[in-house]
């Protein structure tokens, strides 16, 4: 059964695109058929992080408008079998994406893949709304700082009201991914504690990704960090998060913070 997963945050610059690419590649390495879809029309980046910027011929809008076939627009990854990219249009306006056209594209993607991962634009405007529209599950990306957490809270409210699932009276399954976690700064008490972030957002934790130059280096090379340097700390953290998405139980290690998160994660906390 295909799963549509939106990677969203509200705030910009917290690591949505990086996380989409890293989780997508990690899931594909686990043998899942994965497509990552860029919803940031006009400001696309996912093609760069996936290293496919020169291979984009057709994009999401072309397919949604019926000007291209889905298989013409899907860009198959050269490193990992099972991984594909559907790019956003860089030249078109976000209004060019119609709700009806999008619904058809998502339906076609569901038929071909196990995971359809939608990389949401920042903000709460139309692009972000369309990205979450068909989601079965959401990864909420937040940095351990107050503005990011509040924006994430706002987005969770929208996931609970504006998605197709919510309108049918069902719930979008939600996962919290804390990114850019800086161990040194956390030790000095300069960031929100993981415990506080989870308390404020009331969403189960999927993983904590440490701040690392590996992430930036991988992005600049056009590689998801989980492929560029699989043994690095962020790659391992993304890998574990991907396995948790697949239902595995793996302990989350919180560096420098002395408490057990297990109870929170598996204690059936309402989200």
């Amino acid at each position: 059964m295909a799963k549509v997963l939106v990677v969203t945050s509200g705030k910009g610059g917290v690591g949505k695109t990086t996380s989409t690419a890293a989780l997508g590649a990690a899931l594909a390495l686990q043998g899942q058929k994965v497509v990552v879809v860029d919803f940031d029309v006009g400001l696309r980046n996912l093609d760069l992080v996936m290293g496919a910027e020169r291979r984009v011929v057709y994009d999401l809008i072309n397919v949604a408008q019926g000007n291209a076939k889905l298989n013409q627009a899907l860009i198959r990854d050269k490193r990992v079998e099972n991984l594909a990219l559907l790019a956003a249009s860089q030249t078109r306006n976000k209004d060019a994406l119609s709700e009806k056209g999008l619904a058809r594209v998502i339906k076609e993607l569901r038929a071909q893949f196990d995971w359809v991962i939608c990389d949401s634009p920042a903000g709460i405007e139309r692009g972000a709304m369309l990205a979450m529209r068909h989601a079965d599950a959401a990864v909420i990306v937040a940095n351990p700082e107050v503005s990011s957490v509040r924006d994430s809270d706002r987005i969770i409210g929208l996931l609970d009201s504006k998605t197709e699932k919510a309108e049918r009276g069902e719930r979008v399954e939600k996962h919290l991914l804390i990114t850019r976690y800086d161990q040194a700064r956390a030790g000095r008490g300069e960031m929100l504690k993981t415990d506080d972030v989870i308390d404020i957002l009331s969403v189960p934790l999927l993983g904590i990704i440490p701040e690392s130059e590996q992430v930036l280096r991988a992005s600049n090379l056009g590689q998801p960090v989980t492929l560029a340097n699989p043994l690095s700390a962020p790659a391992r953290a993304y890998g574990d998060a991907a396995r948790r998405l697949l239902g595995e139980t793996i302990t989350i290690n919180v560096p420098n913070e002395r408490f057990n998160l297990l109870g929170r994660i598996f204690g059936g906390r309402a989200a």
């Binding site: 809270d153 409210g157 609970d160 009331s202």
Partner: peptide, 8 residues
């Protein structure tokens, strides 16, 4: 019976 989110 659920959290009230920012903006609601």
């Amino acid at each position: 019976s659920e959290p009230v989110r920012s903006g609601q």
